[in-house]
Deep mutational scan, measured.
Amino acid sequence: EETVVIALYDYQTNDPQELALRRNEEYCLLDSSEIHWWRVQDRNGHEGYVPSSYLVEKS
């Protein structure tokens, strides 16, 4: 079962390993094994790492 997370803030990045976030957008959580950086996928299928503190699990 996939976990959906919501971005609390915008996040901009130039790092190809990371993914930009848009506030209030939903993302699919792929990997939360790292404490500070979670791997997520956006609705267009793009994947990357984002700061975990910018996300909240959708209830």
Rank of each mutant, 00 (worst) to 15 (best):
N14L: 09
P16A: 13
G45M: 05
V56Q: 12
Y27N: 02
E47S: 11
N14F: 05
K58S: 10
D42F: 01
H36W: 10
V40D: 01
D42Y: 01
I35W: 06
P51T: 00
R43Y: 10
S53R: 14
W37A: 13
P16N: 07
G45V: 01
Q12P: 12
Y9T: 12
V4E: 06
S53H: 15
S52T: 08
L30K: 14
G48S: 02
E34A: 14
E26T: 10
N24Y: 03
S33W: 03
S59H: 05
L30D: 00
R43T: 11
E2A: 07
E57F: 09
Y9G: 09
W37T: 15
V5H: 07
S59T: 13
G48Q: 02
A7C: 03
V4L: 13
N14Y: 09
C28N: 11
S52A: 15
H46G: 13
L8V: 08
N44S: 14
V4Y: 11
I35F: 09
R23A: 09
W38G: 01
L19C: 13
D31T: 04
D42S: 07
D10S: 06
D15N: 15
Y9M: 14
E18P: 07
L55S: 01
C28V: 13
L19H: 01
N44D: 13
R23N: 05
L21W: 02
R22D: 11
D15T: 14
R23F: 07
D15F: 11
V50W: 02
T3W: 03
D10I: 00
N14T: 15
V4S: 07
L21Y: 01
L29D: 02
L29C: 08
N24T: 10
Y27T: 01
Y9F: 14
R43Q: 11
L8R: 13
E25W: 06
Y27S: 01
I6V: 12
E2K: 15
Y49H: 09
G48R: 02
Q41E: 09
N24L: 10
L30Y: 02
I6T: 15
S32D: 15
V5Q: 04
Q12D: 07
E47D: 05
E57N: 08
Q41W: 02
C28W: 13
H46Y: 09
V56G: 07
E25M: 08
